[in-house]
Design a protein around this nucleic acid. Structure first.
Lengths: 230, 230
DNA sequence: ACCTGAACACCGTTCAAGT
DNA sequence: ACCTGAACACCGTTCAAGT
């Protein structure tokens, strides 16, 4: 019995802030951000809920840490946060944004979390610095760069603030049915639905699988900024 | 004693879904969305928490209802959701968006709520229909109108997805101090801070009091769309 | 028809205590 | 140094019961 205890104690990897954060990210990926409670996360780590408080001050800090893990992934995938040389600013910025987007698609809870956090991650600020840097080295004035940062907003992290939500369960059936019933109330939307044949039927409502719409929006802004840069 | 009971019973306005929703909006305005719990809302209405469930199925429906109240305010302030005649599309759309923005500034919890809701308010869809209608009547193809709706995203409701958050308590002191310490880590941002004299110092970080930045972003998109319309 | 009380299954978190 | 148990103040919600 004592031997068994010793064995498990030796086998078990000790907890650490890093391990806690990684487990939290994995849990959110698998079951959504609402499944990330101190108790469930602890269970995932085969530990009591209160043990987490030794590595993390409170839940706020846990969520901040999860954001940081996501930003780290972007940094890794970009090969660091240096402003590239010899690349046109628009290309450099666009590829960076698309890389960020790829990371966000792996962690679909991340956009909402990013937007609701009030603490600023230091790593996130460094990401913003290189985004700004790409524009400055590309010939932007600091004034225009500043406006651009605000205008791009969270788009620089590869996601869009869509307002049409997935409407998970019922997909086409009820939705089309509802729209048909409201035809005279919604003349333009109904006509649009009829005119536009969506290649990928589920891409209309989801925010994240609609790569083409995201790229349309990004290019609209980048082209506009290029024009203002002169 | 019986008389007193009768008096209070006669004096008290009976609960209704409408009264519940208005109270919830008022509570969120005053104390933030996190203060809107079934128990606190009930207390505000001088009623037990369980009484709310007679007028509202659950908390989800309560939050959906709050969104609907906000959209109603926009509708009222726009004088209904009809597509205006004899107004240039860009002007019509811009004023509508700015009206929505004014409403959002009165209910600062609303943007976050709008973005996290998964149920689509019928009234919100009608709002979108007139936004699309303005563009179609302004000479947009349905295809371009569709792209534009996605690109504008929640901006059509008058808010921006900012990633720099207020950082409420400590304003300049710690923030500037921190930036100075990170000067070599954040060369571009630090320079930008130095170069740009903000007329309104608190407008840089807050998402909502920065009217000028919002207008810059909106005009960037509207001008871009005008160019694509041809 | 409208409201309530007690109870349940969950939260985050504190604090004193264990090894 | 690291982890735990019991307890507290809060959630949303059910259900049987009151008027």
């Amino acid at each position: 019995m004592v031997t068994e205890q010793e064995t498990t104690a030796r086998t078990r990897v000790p907890l650490s802030k890093d391990r806690v954060l990684r487990a939290a990210v994995a849990l959110a990926d698998a079951s959504g951000i609402e499944a990330v409670t101190m108790r469930k996360l602890a269970a995932e780590l085969d530990v009591e809920a209160m043990s987490l408080y030794y590595h993390v001050a409170n839940k706020e800090q846990l969520l901040d840490g999860m954001v940081d893990v996501v930003i780290s992934e972007i940094e890794d995938e970009c090969g660091g946060f240096a402003v590239p040389d010899n690349v046109e600013w628009k290309v450099a910025l666009r590829t960076r944004i698309m890389t960020a987007r790829a990371v966000m698609l792996r962690h679909r809870w991340a956009p909402e979390l990013l937007e609701t956090r009030t603490n600023m991650s230091a790593r996130l600020v460094r990401y913003f610095d290189t985004v700004l840097g790409i524009m400055i080295e590309g010939g932007f004035s600091y004034d225009l760069g500043h406006h651009a940062m605000h205008a791009l907003g969270s788009r620089v992290l590869g996601f869009n603030q869509e307002l049409f939500k997935p409407d998970n369960d019922r997909q086409e059936e009820e939705s089309n049915e509802m729209l048909a019933a409201m035809a005279e109330q919604l003349p333009y939307i109904v006509t649009m639905m009829q005119e536009i044949t969506h290649e990928d039927p589920e891409s209309t409502l989801g925010w994240c699988d609609d790569q083409a719409e995201f790229e349309f929006g990004i290019d609209l802004m980048l082209d506009g900024l290029e024009r203002l840069r002169g």
